[in-house]
Design a protein around this nucleic acid. Structure first.
Length: 154
DNA sequence: GCCAACGTTGGC
DNA sequence: GCCAACGTTGGC
């Protein structure tokens, strides 16, 4: 059963253009247990992800990717020079996991948070709910299709 | 840069 | 195991 996800990144940190250039990347640096659990326990190869830029102008969905590898230990947690270093992590117990994602689409015009808020069918989108800060959230198939249609609209 | 909302930490 | 203090996120 294919699932759908919305995954946030600050474009100054890693953007849709970086992914387009790299084609494939590790989604490293997630240090929130709920988000980790989604990646570790629920994501499957072939799932679709919406690439959301936060703290952006404008914030919103900028493109789409697919999950190509799951349950990858996040090596940045073991690297003392990394901003994502976690002294509690070890080879035996990595604590943090990531997935590998592969570029699919960059939207000509981003689907901004403004558009998301005003689109029928997205009233319950997790990332629009008050106080929602989670960097990885599930998206329903219908929500995914609404956003893709907005993004790929000519 | 502000600040509301949330997650995490650590003393007890 | 409670909860106050602190740190972070992210829209505005």
């Amino acid at each position: 059963m294919t699932k759908y996800w919305l995954m946030k990144s600050e474009p100054g940190c890693y953007s849709i253009d970086n992914l387009k250039d790299d084609n494939e990347t590790n989604w490293e640096g997630v240090r929130n247990f709920q988000a980790r659990n989604f990646m570790r326990d629920e994501m499957k190869v072939g799932d679709f992800g919406l690439f959301y830029h936060s703290n952006a102008k404008p914030s919103g969905v900028y493109g789409m990717f697919q999950i190509v590898k799951t349950k990858v230990p996040d090596f940045t947690a073991l690297d003392p020079t990394s901003q994502y270093y976690d002294p509690k992590a070890s080879q035996e117990n990595p604590i943090w996991f990531m997935v590998d994602v592969e570029f699919r689409e960059k939207f000509q015009i981003p689907v901004s948070i403004e558009i998301l808020k005003n689109s029928k069918g997205l009233e319950n989108l997790a990332t629009l709910q008050k106080g929602s800060r989670l960097s990885i959230t599930p998206v329903s198939k219908n929500e995914f299709e609404v956003i893709i249609n907005l993004g790929l609209k000519k």
